[in-house]
Design a protein around this nucleic acid. Structure first.
Length: 867
RNA sequence: GCCGAUGUGGUGAAAUGGUAAACACAGCGGACUUAAAAUCCGCUGGGAGGCAACUCCCUUGCCGGUUCGAGUCCGGCCAUCGGCACCA
């Protein structure tokens, strides 16, 4: 059915207004999607394949793969996906072997919660959601190689997630900070206990974030303001036996190796802040009675003379031993209160300092002074040594605490330029500080550290905020650990036992206790007569930590990725994924975890680059039409399916790129969609026109001739700008230029078919359906044109000579203000331009007879007369 | 509190230190039409002067600086958004 026959006859045939489209995208978009599939147009051969061409450079362009939720795609997905699709198609036309894959990060809580509510197995929900997502993505015409589709819940995939876990389990970090096989330690006869204590995947009994509502523990990165990132439920700390990954051993490298990456500085900074390196010193304080020593960490050892008390975290192991009998009841009370507080409560109460005196005293090593020891929850157990020396004069928190409890405040730093010293935390000159007297802060620090080291009272140290990664979850829908327990000890499954599938359960509910749901499958749990399986599962991040590697070789059942494929697609040195596009929300989660795993795999020789993602770009959030974040409750959510139905996939793609710079936050506008839709219709009508019956046919204005000079110039300007703008990811300006070009061609009475064919190549990465449709129609009529799919054709080169004009416009300024313009020959030299400018009546008028002080001539641009 | 990003027409925005506002949306006017839609053509930052073609002045959050010339570079403020937050 042709859709635009509305003026053909009266009365109109019965036809709803919806089906009257400005161009018949409803017909040709699905058609081209099918043709591309049939032609395997987006298949990417691997090294070793018959049709692989090793002479071409590679380009690996990656999207953050989606969690296939029940809601389907939202308009944020196609933003990044279209950007990578444009780059991928463009690079392909530029002669690159392009790897542009898609897959599913499909383990996760929503499928499990849905299962709890409805009894539907998460596998079914996941399959259904993936089918829906895939159909939606196909309808947008993305050039993914679907033969490389991966799914983190597929046993053929998570088999290798489990295998990588075993690499972590069987590795340690050596003195150079490199991951090495733990067999090296075993060969040295290291004891079993010490081996277990050094593994990169280890079991810990430490306090963890327990979320009762979700029935699981969470990583620090998943807890926001004391509440779970998913669902916003309160989280409390309790000691539990959990699997941890030793990411802290890589803290320094994760920080240093950011330097070589082409990432937004803001994301690097987020990671640096999260890793949170601080340099300082540990200082030993002897207890007044008994030989025990309290070690504190400080970044300001230069203020040691101002330390007027010590504070221990409530959980500090020395508290029990040093508290005096008189203070014990109060201290016990305080500690038990603190242990019951959730992180949220601790944060909310952060304004008010609380604490309790232990009754004990320590000795300041630098001046022998007797100072009280307190317990307070503003000192955290997990950071540094869990104990601090308090210098209330020069630390805000210590100052507040000292105010509440009336503790001594002693100045030891003189601020510059007569500022108030109480609460001054900046750098200054040491005062009241014995051997440091008169030294600026930096020198004082270094001198006192040297002194402490000589006396055996302390040492220089570095601390990180980054904690080890809590890696186990009490959930059903995740990768089971390839671990069994026997005689109270853990041990790895053999690689041949992978993949380890989860048991089939009917009841996925959390047990309400820290006992994981896998405990509900007793036959599965019982590995052998004497051994039981680990019941925890891995967190959702596990599958996404290495998926980009699997894309290189997704069907390999011998290795997690084949060596040749890995080597080719990831490259060496500053290689890795050439462009990774996704949202900022993963700045400290996925992006840090994946870098960590990659470094372990690199150290162990399994991958050839130290970093996974060489270039990262964050797409900006798309807001609702009201400028607010899209949400169901606000009712401002835009469904991409509706847009595709009304305006077509090409219009959606083009609009999302035309909205503004990729990285910027920007509001949706349906009017804007209509704008680009009208543009596409204009392009359509450059090639097509309606006959008397309203049927579309090739335009009679088409000619098999080169375009006239002015149009040729616009065309070549467009070739130049679109190419350059795609390279810079400046898609909005590339589209503007194509609009300029289209407007110029629309105004012409004759349409050069070769010029239009060239223009369609430029358009094809943005609006691939329309471009292929029109191009194929042109090629059918004009035998000089290549009949291949546009993606298989090569990107046009612009002709610099076509851009040159005989005459150019020169601006004449007086004192920097525009006063006149003139058209001059393109090769007019400086003196000619100067003469012309000074001769201009308008220039003379504004010179007001004043003498010329200086003339600036910028050839091809302007002349500025300074008077 | 600390860190980061962003401030340009009615709106989304564009501008290698060189004509601010390209391209688009909205608005206004015209052509076509019995009419409407669609399409095509034109106008559209603010102010002042002129019958007019036109001319002048002002304008990129605010203040200052560098420069022949600043939206762009430098310094200092202000506002909005985002992240982190008792990390010693």
């Amino acid at each position: 059915m042709r859709s635009s026959c509305f003026w053909a006859c009266w009365p109109l045939p019965i036809m709803s207004s919806e089906s009257r489209k400005a161009f018949p995208f409803t017909q040709f978009e699905p058609l081209w999607q099918q043709r591309w599939d049939e032609a395997c147009a987006h298949r990417t051969p691997n090294p070793g394949d018959a049709d692989f061409d090793p002479s071409r450079p590679k380009f690996f362009v990656l999207d953050m793969f989606p969690y296939p939720s029940g809601q389907g795609l939202h308009v944020g997905h196609p933003e990044g996906y279209t950007a990578t699709d444009i780059i991928g198609r463009y690079k392909r036309m530029r002669g690159f072997n392009v790897l542009h894959p898609m897959g599913w990060d499909a383990f996760g809580l929503p499928a499990e919660q849905y299962a709890i509510k409805t009894g539907t197995h998460p596998r079914q929900t996941t399959e259904r959601n993936i089918a829906n997502f895939k159909q939606q993505l196909r309808s947008l015409g993305f050039a993914y190689d679907w033969q490389r589709e991966i799914n983190t819940t597929d046993p053929g995939y998570f088999r290798w997630t489990q295998w990588i876990f075993l690499q972590l389990y069987n590795s340690y970090v050596n003195s150079e900070g490199r991951a090495r096989p733990i067999a090296e330690l075993e060969a040295q006869g290291v004891s079993r206990d010490e081996l277990d204590a050094r593994r990169l995947a280890y079991v810990s009994e430490a306090p963890v974030n327990w979320c009762p509502a979700l029935g699981t523990v969470l990583a620090n990165e998943e807890v926001i303001d004391g509440k779970s990132e998913v669902g916003g439920h309160p989280v409390e700390r309790r000691p539990m036996r959990q699997w941890m990954l030793r990411i802290t051993a890589f803290a320094q490298r994760l920080m240093d190796e950011l330097d070589g990456l082409d990432w937004p500085e803001s994301i690097k900074l987020l990671q640096r802040n999260w890793i949170g390196r601080s340099e300082g010193a540990e200082v030993n304080f002897k207890l007044e009675h008994g030989g025990e020593v309290i070690t504190v960490f400080t970044t300001r050892p230069d203020t040691l003379f101002g330390a007027t008390y010590l504070v221990l975290a409530p959980e500090h192991p020395l508290v029990d031993g040093l508290v005096t009998e008189g203070q014990r009841p109060m201290v016990e009370q305080y500690r038990s209160n603190a242990s019951r507080k959730s992180d949220l409560e601790r944060t909310e109460l952060a304004k008010e300092k609380t604490g309790v005196f232990t009754g004990a005293h320590a000795v300041n090593p630098v001046n022998g002074e007797r100072i009280p020891i307190w317990v307070a929850d503003y000192v955290l157990t997990g950071y540094g040594t869990g104990a601090i020396m308090a210098v209330p004069a020069h630390d805000q928190r210590d100052f507040e605490f000292a105010q509440v409890f009336g503790l001594a405040v002693r100045q030891v730093v003189q601020p510059p330029s007569g500022q108030e010293w109480r609460g001054f935390t900046g750098e200054g000159i040491a005062v009241n500080s014995g051997l440091l007297e008169g030294l600026p802060t930096a020198e004082a620090k270094s001198k006192i550290i040297t002194w402490l080291q000589e006396q055996g009272l302390g040492r220089r140290t570095v601390n990180f905020k980054l904690r080890d990664w809590l890696f186990s979850r009490q959930r059903y829908w995740g990768e089971p650990f390839p671990i069994v327990w026997e005689n109270g000890q853990h041990r790895a499954l053999r690689e041949t036992e992978l993949p380890l599938l989860p048991p089939d359960l009917e009841d996925f509910k959390p047990t309400g206790t820290p006992e994981p749901p896998l405990s509900k499958a007793p036959e599965w749990v019982q590995y052998s007569a004497t051994a039981k399986r680990e019941l925890n599962t891995m967190p959702q991040w596990a599958g996404s930590c290495w998926y980009y590697l699997r894309y290189c070789d997704p069907r390999n059942d011998q290795r997690f990725v084949g060596e040749a494929a890995q080597d080719y697609w990831m490259g060496r040195g500053h290689g890795g994924v050439d462009l990774y596009v996704g949202g900022t929300e993963h700045a400290v989660l996925h992006l840090l975890y994946a870098r960590f795993w990659h470094k372990v795999l690199f150290d162990l020789g399994h991958v050839t680059t130290p970093e996974p993602f060489q270039r990262l770009v964050n797409q900006g959030l798309i807001l609702g039409e009201d400028g607010q974040k899209m949400s169901k409750s606000r009712g401002n959510v835009v469904n991409p399916d509706d847009v595709v139905k009304e305006y077509g996939a090409d219009a959606l793609r083009l609009y999302e790129m035309f909205m503004g710079p990729l990285e910027q936050v920007k509001p949706w506008s349906m009017k804007g969609v209509e704008g680009v839709y009208r543009f596409l219709a204009r392009v359509w009508r450059l090639v097509m026109e309606a006959d008397e019956q309203g049927e579309w046919r090739l335009s009679a204005a088409l000619v098999d001739l080169a375009p006239p000079k002015d149009l040729n110039k616009v065309l070549h300007e467009t070739i130049k700008k679109v190419g350059e703008d795609i390279e810079r990811l400046s898609f909005n300006t590339a589209i503007s230029q194509m609009m300029v070009c289209t407007n110029a061609f629309t105004a012409a009475s004759q349409r050069s078919a070769p010029a239009l064919a060239c223009f369609l190549k430029l358009l094809s990465p943005f609006a691939p359906h329309l471009a292929d449709e029109l191009h194929s129609r042109l090629a059918a009529q004009f035998p000089g044109l290549c009949r291949e799919l546009l993606i298989a054709q090569s990107w046009p080169e612009y002709d610099p000579t076509a851009l040159i004009e005989d005459e150019i416009e020169i601006v004449f300024q007086v004192n920097g203000k525009l006063r006149d313009k003139a058209r001059v020959p393109k090769d007019a030299d400086k003196t000619q331009l100067e003469t012309m400018a000074l001769a201009s009546a308008r220039v003379q008028e504004f010179m007001e007879g004043k003498p010329v002080r200086k003339v600036i001539v910028v050839p091809g641009k302007l002349v500025n007369v300074v008077v």
